[in-house]
């Protein structure tokens, strides 16, 4: 059976079935979202029911649990995805492997790449892009406006507050494998917008936690994604992490895991919550 023969067969089939497909099936939109910020936006726009599949990291997004898991964003499976019969795959630029994306396009799935850049401007663009794809432009604008308002609130609060708290953003790559988030990460943006100072802003990207770095950072706050706290064994366990054990006086604040992975539509809310906690008066501490 040669490819050419099969190809001809495919072409014939397509021609034969085109009127059928057009007549029988209305344009039902079945989406696969890859990247938590994209998944969150779809849900925030009230279109969560369209999601037939989401990637691993999106499983942490509230409301995404009803969609099927399609695996890690860089190791997607073409046939696995196609078995969910999606019409559109909306993914970050990190989605892959490239060959799989090509195969999806070849099977007639519309693959749209929406960059996951961790800046506020990119977050606004992301919301607008997803809203446009969903045909919900107005709702998208409303989301952007709400986000802008919340970010302004946060900015006002952090301006009036002094001094700016020093924050060290940590997350666990696995039990006992701690990483710090430097400049250019979603966590770094979150800290800045909430009026804090990222203590390791001199580093770009994520780096393994080193004891000396913690001592030099001398943080007022340790910022963690919620999911990492159990891996540390709670706040108690965190204080035994090498490095953190040596500096005293820090407090722990947590945010939802998704805010460490990208800046989504709830960025404003997250920033406000974080800002409130960072600027709350320290609880009275007894002398040791």
């Amino acid at each position: 059976m040669s490819r050419a023969t099969l190809g001809r067969g495919l072409a014939l089939c397509l021609v034969a079935m085109a009127p059928l497909a057009l007549g029988a099936e209305p344009a039902e939109q079945r989406w696969v979202a890859v990247g938590p910020a994209i998944t969150e936006t779809v849900i925030a726009l009230g279109q969560g029911a369209r999601l037939v599949g989401v990637d691993d990291t999106s499983m942490a997004v509230p409301g995404a649990a009803s969609a099927r898991r399609v695996g890690y964003q860089r190791a997607l499976s073409a046939e696995g995805l196609l078995s969910l019969r999606p019409t559109k795959v909306v993914a970050t630029e990190e989605a892959g492997p490239p060959a799989v994306l090509e195969q999806l396009r070849g099977a007639g799935v519309d693959v749209v790449i929406v960059p996951n850049t961790p800046t506020v401007e990119a977050a606004r663009r992301r919301i607008r892009e997803v809203a446009r794809l969903l045909g919900r432009v107005e709702q998208g604008e409303a989301l952007v406006t709400a986000m802008n308002r919340e970010l302004e609130q946060a900015a006002t609060r952090s301006k009036s507050a002094a001094p700016r708290p020093r924050v060290l953003a940590l997350y666990a790559r696995g039990a006992g494998n701690w990483m710090v988030a430097g400049a250019g990460t979603a966590a770094d943006q979150l800290i800045q917008l909430a009026g804090g100072v990222n203590t390791v802003a001199a580093w770009t990207g994520t780096r393994p936690l080193t004891q000396e770095a913690v001592i030099e950072a001398a943080p007022d706050f340790i910022l963690l994604p919620e999911g990492s706290l159990p891996l540390a064994g709670g706040v108690e366990g965190l204080s035994r992490v090498p490095g953190l054990a040596l500096v005293k006086g820090w407090r722990v604040v947590t945010v939802e895991d998704v805010h460490f992975m990208g800046l989504g539509p709830r960025l404003g809310t997250a920033v406000n919550q974080l800002g409130e906690r960072l600027h709350a008066p320290a609880p009275a501490r007894r002398a040791p």
């Binding site: 495919l10 014939l12 089939c13 196609l82």
Partner: peptide, 25 residues
């Protein structure tokens, strides 16, 4: 579909997605 490719007309055919899965995946 194989018969169709060989020029025999039949009622059963693969859907385009199924063709794509077979041929390109």
């Amino acid at each position: 579909s194989v018969l169709a490719a060989l020029g025999v007309d039949t009622a059963h055919r693969l859907e385009p997605v199924q063709e794509a899965v077979l041929l390109s995946i």
